[in-house]
């Protein structure tokens, strides 16, 4: 019910917002946004915490599925493999709202997974973001492991290494590229709004994340909170990219 109310509000407010926006952007808003962030505003940081919880959980789940799946596709030959690879690469660009809609249909009471009662909970948001991120991790893993296998095949075969030993060696030696893939997945999850808006419902104090809150607060005209969350989100995205960069650099130095 909450969600219905919020979505109506957003639609309703869009027009108003557009009309009032120019007057409402001011120095005062920017200063109070910074104040919210710097003073450790409880509501704001609850939203940040939930966002990180949802997106990090989704990346962990997506990695648990995507890395083995990508490695398996890289190392196995089966009919239709080329088609699977093309599909996987295409799924990297899945529109979040479509994923949201599909997960919504699956989780809604009359849907196939409706019995679990997950719709409009953080768990539903984790499911949606996992679906969104998994193809990215699987496709990047597939590419990385396949390239590495072409390079290592002769050596690992000559060492008489079994299939499990091969996979372990390849994943370990691809570790720095795989961390980059995970961070790419996290960036995608943290930045998307369409999927979690639909399956989470943007319920205050329960399923409201940074991106859904920014969308809502902007349309309501509560710009300090929106700008404050936007600042936090940008800092997180920059931090994630800085981390990806340093992981790569460290990898090149340690492993060549």
């Amino acid at each position: 019910m909450h969600m219905g109310a919020d979505i109506t509000k957003i639609d309703h407010n869009d027009g108003i917002c557009a009309r009032y926006l120019p007057n409402r952007i001011s120095m005062t808003n920017d200063v109070s946004a910074l104040h919210l962030v710097l003073s450790g505003d409880a509501a704001l940081f609850a939203i940040v915490r939930l966002s990180l919880y949802v997106s990090l959980s989704a990346v962990v789940l997506a990695a648990l599925i995507g890395i083995p799946l990508g490695a398996w596709i890289a190392l196995t030959r089966f009919p239709g493999r080329q088609g699977v690879i093309v599909l996987l690469n295409a799924l990297m660009g899945l529109p979040p709202v479509v994923v949201g809609l599909a997960v919504y249909l699956a989780l809604s009471r009359s849907g196939p997974l409706g019995a679990f009662g997950l719709l409009f909970t953080p768990s539903a948001m984790i499911v949606a973001q996992t679906v969104l991120v998994m193809p990215i991790i699987a496709a990047l893993t597939r590419q990385t492991i396949e390239d590495l296998w072409l390079e290592y095949r002769d050596e690992l075969t000559a060492m008489n290494l079994g299939p499990l030993g091969r996979v372990a060696a390849l994943i370990w030696d691809a570790r720095f590229s795989l961390v980059t893939a995970l961070l790419a997945g996290f960036g995608r999850a943290a930045a998307e709004v369409g999927a979690i808006m639909i399956v989470g419902g943007n319920i205050e104090g329960f399923t409201r994340t940074m991106t859904t809150a920014i969308a809502l607060e902007t349309s309501k005209g509560d710009l300090p909170l929106a700008v404050g969350l936007g600042l936090v989100l940008i800092v997180i995205v920059i931090a994630v990219n800085a981390l990806a960069w340093s992981v790569r650099r460290a990898g090149e130095r340690l492993a060549g």
Partner: peptide
């Protein structure tokens, strides 16, 4: 098991020199 080969372009594992040797010993 008791044969070994050095290929014309040996692939080095993305590890230290010692770790490359440990890998072969383990294998």
């Amino acid at each position: 098991l008791k044969r070994a080969i050095v290929f014309q372009h040996p692939a080095m594992l993305r590890r230290s020199a010692s770790a490359n040797l440990r890998f072969a010993l383990r294998a």
